[in-house]
Design a protein around this nucleic acid. Structure first.
Length: 826
RNA sequence: GCCGAAGUGGCGGAAUUGGCAGACGCGUCGGUCUCAAAAACCGAUGUCCUAACAGACGUGCCGGUUCGACCCCGGCCUUCGGCACCA
């Protein structure tokens, strides 16, 4: 056996062997319990970064651990391969996006293999491959068939820099999630998925997700944004046009002093047409439309509005209130109209103060005497109280009035109770080339015609030219011109492609059946593998990817293609990899390349450090010295085995653990309590850092044991083998090498996870902590089965304890078995 | 503003059910080996006080519950993340 740990020899050797022998291939054995371990698949940017290394190391530890525990593990990988960077590279280098992408995939695949991650490469998928996007298109058609995909003209988010539209979820504080450019609005006809049809389910089923971080569930709840309220219909005076208004505070309806419409509200143009207000209103609306998303929706923006010359009637009080338009009312939330109640809403208070609109108190703060109810208000009162200035409802508790008012509106047929969501339908069209084409044909005679299933995939053409700011598909005549599948006449193809989030919203299903050429996935395969037992990835996908995937899963369930309600049983959101306190990123220049680390220390060291440095869900601070420490530890393991190995006799002695001396017993206790702790740390808490700590402690103990007289080979060997097996999921190469060095023929990764020998954990003596008034004063060794009286005698005979009892009276003695005795004195 | 998470040595982090605060690793210091160094091995390492033994203090701050609190409760402070004119 080599004296030195030569990682650069052993790592490639085993990687080659594992690939050739397909040791990580998933066996579909229905007699074994399945376990689906999944990391969020990467975008093939060309190189792995530390965030990937962390993500894939974590999942690999789980997958390898579960395999050793006897589970049938599915641990696949693939590529989220459509997207803008490929097109930008095409413009910059004049390389076709496909070529650029496949080269990147090849490089990253090599890097993943050098990490020693145990993927079943036979299940590798790439979303840009026609065999995959054929089924992405098929899914579009399924949604279309069921009325869940539809086209509509709407004011949509437009990123001028990416030259494409964006879903609401992709707009972050008014900026493009990808390139950070300010997003504007554009009126375009686009394809949407009716995710809002699932709002209620997407919200309610969050409760089933016990294995998800509370943080992510809260983010999804906020995004879905359910609010209960009342729809109240104000009617325009003179024309009787209804203005439905959604309010969550119908109890304040007698306090309405104006109604505000969104500037783009269709009623606005109708009402002002031909009036003296027309010009001013028109220029105000124009100004609003010119503003970008941020300038329009930020809370800091000054509220601006104007009267449009009409009044409407309050459905309960009958009062006549002016109709305004204002920047803060959004057309696509609720009904695009709100009632202004300055007395009981802070925003309305500010608006009314600015424009001198009346402020009416309708709920009285219980701290204010009734006779002061008509004093001017200096701020909005938003809490509960007693109704005033509200006709028949005066004197009621506002919560009671609330119900009565809603009921009365319903009786008058001027309103109803309603639930509103913030969630909007998912805009999936993209004006880009490198995505899955939307399988739709426009025929002058037949209109919108779906591409027949047997004609899928609609392939991306190759005869195209890339220019900045233009979708090359539009200019590809071979692509655009086609024949109508219905009438056979000439027709045009849809040139928009699908949002790449669509490709990534079902990839976990394709892994279950990756080579199926007649279906997206077979029912029996997904029923066996789904759902994902453990999903791991960055929290940046908390809304987008995770919400869309949940939506698709529910849709497929309803279409009869699978049985689960939710795709991901347990979710672990890993922390960021940081250096000098901030996230590693190219733009900050604080990156460490994984390849560099692997070259210098090997993949096992890189993997070990990244799971040892912090618990997986927390941010991790990169430390070159910490890496060095892990490398030292692996060297230490190597030498330990090498040194013991020379003492092991050729014939492995029978495991004989009777009649052991105290040192041997202690050693066995170490071995088995470590097995217990590591198993528990990995299985129930994902605390890999503490698992590795205790393996380190076991290694330290074995070093010390080696120096004892009369070392029992069986005990030492048991300890060594435990170290190797426990470490195998973290550092697969070195453990495999050492495992074969100590004489095993079969891979360590095929071994069963070590079992705890309970008899080795039995201790004859325990340390008892002695406290006086809760302060530690002494510790004593006592037999485990010591009687209460004996223990008390031992405690009181402690010199240190005696000192503290002098001149005091013992009030109470608290005993915690096998742990501690606390004497309370006065 | 609202919601959530976190705050422990010089650093990363432990303490699993309210019971030894600081495991393990890094760093630092000392020792062994060596002509010397590196590596390796052994040991020390929260702060204050002390020659030492001992002792006092110590988990962001203030208070509470408890025999006993990093852990539970109330009130604050700071940092990070998310949401934010949502009617």
């Amino acid at each position: 056996m080599q004296e030195r740990y030569l990682f650069n020899e052993i790592e490639p050797k085993w990687q080659k062997r594992w690939l050739e022998q397909k040791v990580d291939k998933t066996e579909e054995n229905p007699n074994k319990q399945k376990f689906y371990a999944l990391a969020m698949f990467p975008y093939p940017s060309g190189n792995l970064h530390m965030g990937h290394v962390r993500n894939y190391s974590i999942v690999d530890v789980i997958a390898r651990f579960k395999r050793m525990q006897g589970f049938n593990v599915l641990h696949p990988i693939g590529w989220d391969a459509f997207g803008l960077p490929a097109e930008n590279a095409a413009i910059k280098n004049q390389t076709p996006p496909a070529e650029w992408t496949w080269e990147n995939i090849a490089n990253m695949k090599r890097q993943l293999q050098e990490m020693g991650i145990s993927y079943d490469w036979d299940r590798e998928i790439a979303t840009c491959h026609p065999d995959y996007y054929k089924w992405t298109q098929w899914i579009f058609l399924e949604l279309f068939k069921h009325g869940l995909a539809y086209k509509k003209k709407a004011a949509v988010n437009w990123c001028p820099s990416c030259a494409t539209v964006l879903a609401n979820e992709q707009v972050v504080e008014g900026h493009c999630e990808r390139c950070d450019a300010a997003v504007t609005k554009k009126d375009l006809e686009q394809w949407f998925f009716k995710i809002t049809a699932y709002s209620e389910q997407l919200l309610n089923d969050l409760e089933k997700l016990d294995g998800w971080p509370e943080k992510v569930k809260t983010m999804q709840r906020n995004w879905i944004g359910r609010s209960e309220g009342t729809l109240a219909t104000f009617k325009v005076e003179g024309t009787d046009d209804p203005i439905p208004v959604f309010t969550t505070r119908v109890d304040t309806i007698y306090g309405v002093s104006y109604v505000v419409l969104a500037p783009e509200h269709p009623l606005v143009a109708k009402l002002v047409q031909g009036t003296e207000y027309e010009q001013d209103v028109f220029s105000f609306v124009k100004k609003m439309q010119g503003l970008n998303e941020l300038a329009r929706t930020s809370a800091e923006v000054e509220k601006e509005g104007m009267f449009i010359g009409h009044y409407c009637i309050n459905p309960l009080s009958g009062a006549k209130v002016p109709i305004w338009i204002a920047n803060y009312v959004l057309l696509d939330y609720g009904t695009g109209a709100v009632m202004g109640v300055p007395g009981h809403d802070e925003r309305d208070f500010a608006f009314a103060s600015k424009y001198n609109l009346p402020i009416i108190r309708v709920i009285l703060d219980p701290a204010i005497p009734l006779e002061d109810k008509d004093l001017p208000m200096t701020e909005a009162y938003v809490d509960d109280g007693i109704m005033v200035n509200s006709a028949e409802f005066d004197g009621l508790d506002n919560r009671d009035a609330w119900e009565k008012m809603a009921t009365k509106l319903e009786q008058l047929k001027l309103g109803e109770r309603q639930v509103n969501y913030r969630l909007r339908d998912w805009l999936i069209s993209r004006q880009r080339y490198w995505g899955a084409p939307i399988p739709i044909i426009y025929c002058e005679k037949c209109g919108i015609v779906p591409v027949p299933e047997e004609q899928l995939p609609v392939k991306l053409p190759g005869d195209i030219v890339f220019k900045t700011g233009e979708n090359p598909l539009v200019s590809s005549e071979s692509f655009v011109n086609t024949t109508c599948p219905q009438c056979g006449g000439s027709a045009k193809r849809e040139t928009d492609t699908m949002d790449t989030f669509m490709c990534s919203s079902w990839y976990f299903l394709r892994y279950c059946d990756p080579h199926n050429s007649s279906e997206a996935f077979a029912r029996d395969k997904v029923d066996y593998w789904m759902n994902v037992d453990q999903y791991v990835g960055g929290v940046e996908h908390a809304i987008l990817h995770l919400l869309y995937s949940r939506f698709f899963t529910k849709v497929f369930r309803d279409f009869g293609y699978l049985q689960v309600d939710e795709p991901f049983q347990n979710l672990l959101t890993q922390g960021m990899v940081c250096m000098d306190g901030s996230k590693m990123s190219k733009s900050k220049g604080n990156v460490v390349s994984p390849e560099e680390i692997i070259q210098k220390y090997g993949a096992d060291t890189a993997r070990l450090f990244i799971v040892f440095a912090a618990p997986p869900d927390r941010d991790l601070e990169w430390s070159d010295q910490g890496v060095e420490g892990c490398y030292r530890f692996l060297n230490r393991v190597w030498r330990l085995v090498a040194q013991y190995q020379s003492t092991f006799s050729q014939n492995i002695p029978a495991e004989e653990f009777q009649d052991l001396d105290a040192e041997a017993k202690k050693m066995r206790w170490h071995t088995h309590s470590t097995i217990q702790k590591v198993t528990n740390d990995i299985a129930t808490r994902f605390n890999f850092n503490t698992a590795i700590s205790s393996i380190m402690e076991l290694v330290n103990a074995l070093y010390l044991y080696k120096e004892k007289d009369n070392v029992k080979q069986a005990v030492a060997r048991e300890g060594i083998e435990a170290v190797l097996k426990l470490l195998a999921p973290f550092a697969p190469h070195i453990t495999e090498e050492l495992w074969s060095e100590i004489g095993h023929k079969e891979s360590i990764h095929k071994q069963a996870w070590p079992e705890v020998d309970e008899s080795a954990l039995i201790q004859e003596e325990v340390t008892i902590i002695l406290q006086v008034n809760g302060k530690l004063r002494d510790r004593i060794q006592v037999p485990v089965d010591v009687s209460a009286e004996e223990l008390e005698k031992l405690v009181l005979s402690s010199e240190k304890v005696k000192n503290y009892l002098e001149g005091k009276t013992v009030v109470k003695v608290v005993k915690v078995p096998k742990k501690l005795v606390n004497i309370v004195v006065k």
